[in-house]
Design a protein around this nucleic acid. Structure first.
Lengths: 108, 108
DNA sequence: TGTAACCACTTTCAAAAGTAAAGTATTGGG
DNA sequence: CCCAATACTTTACTTTTGAAAGTGGTTACA
């Protein structure tokens, strides 16, 4: 078997797995919004243009399940829910910044 | 107006724009496969597990339109088509590597 | 007293995106 | 003559996403 320099299912599937966690259309925008501190649900809705409630809920749930954000509920009136990045989530900052830098140079 | 540290539509929409270009489910895997040199259509199909023909065609077309890959046709029989990264595409290497590094530490 | 607004969602239904599988055109080899 | 290889295209179907309205509890305003 010729070696083309790619280990098919170790490297490539890893990427697919990563994208399963943060590759959704909105995940990175949400993570980006959380880099400068905790946010409430409605704040995120306002900060992320064009996201809809349903998708924000879904992505937040997915990210919570994947240990990227954590959710804290306060029994206030009206109810308060705070979303924060976990350490795992914070560690995405260099990746997203690199992507962002690329975008500044090549997109728009 | 309180400044929460995010310029809503300058920074956030930029990320959305970037993801419009390389945020598709398969884009990064294709780019990753092209980092070590040009590949033919069928090679890409074999290298990227679970992608289907229709999606590979679509993503390649999209990336070509966005100046990330270039396509060269050779009038051989059977036909040969080579896909390469443009400079713009190659410049994504640090971003994808950062993401990959994060994945190694935190995913799987 | 009514009514409007805030918050954090949930529900519903249509539209868009993705998947699977088969088909197309060309030609060289057994 | 049939099969294989290449680079797609087409069709039919499933899944995901989007837009919009609704829920339930409370408080502020007139």
């Amino acid at each position: 078997m010729k070696d083309n320099g790619i280990k098919k299912c170790e490297e490539k599937c890893a990427l697919q797995e990563i994208l399963g966690v943060i590759g959704g259309k909105w995940s990175m925008s949400i993570i980006y919004a959380l880099f400068n501190g905790k946010k409430r649900f409605s704040e995120l809705e306002r900060l992320i243009p064009n996201i809809n409630t349903r998708m924000l809920v879904k992505e937040l749930k997915n990210m919570e399940a994947n240990g990227i954000v954590s959710r804290k509920i306060f029994a206030t009136v009206p109810p308060t829910v705070e979303y924060t990045l976990t350490t795992k989530g914070e560690k995405l900052e260099p990746s997203i910044n690199e992507l962002y830098k690329w975008g500044l140079e090549y997109v728009g």
